[in-house]
């Protein structure tokens, strides 16, 4: 009887501890995106913009669960590149966003259309 109770109750307790200690792997690699985006928005200087662009460049290397860049990334980076004098490269990135995430077709597709006119 005693052995039965121990076996029945030890399993859920062990499982609860395991689930508490297990860290789910992030879907995407963010590096220091949050801080760089915040600093860029707060300061709006050439330095903070350059740091943000470097950060965006880094994010292409994805080691997250999905192995691809997060939603919005290609659109945002593409738009930044477009506005920094790299129009063609910027448009390529924006088109990648629509390919990777069809949900963006209406919004990003519309921006691409306007920029290409």
């Amino acid at each position: 009887m005693r052995r039965f109770f121990f076996s029945v109750f030890s399993v859920p307790f062990l499982l609860s501890f395991v689930s508490c200690t297990m860290q789910e792997k992030a879907l995407y690699s963010w590096y220091d995106y949050d801080n760089a985006a915040y600093k860029y928005q707060k300061e709006l200087t050439d330095n903070s913009k350059a740091a943000f662009m470097t950060q965006m460049d880094k994010m292409e290397k994805q080691r997250g669960q999905r192995g691809i860049v997060p939603p919005g990334y290609n659109a945002e980076y593409g738009f930044l590149l477009y506005n920094s004098g790299q129009a063609e490269k910027g448009l390529q990135y924006m088109k990648k966003e629509v390919e990777l995430y069809p949900e963006s077709q209406l919004f990003i597709g519309g921006i691409i259309k306007r920029l290409e006119q």
């Binding site: 915040y38 997060p70 919005g72 945002e76 919004f107 990003i108 921006i111």
Partner: peptide, 19 residues
Amino acid sequence: TTLYQPLCEKGYYVFSPQL
């Protein structure tokens, strides 16, 4: 902009906040 990352990590398509 701070809402973008946690919503993406939840598995949603999140429109770029900058755009």
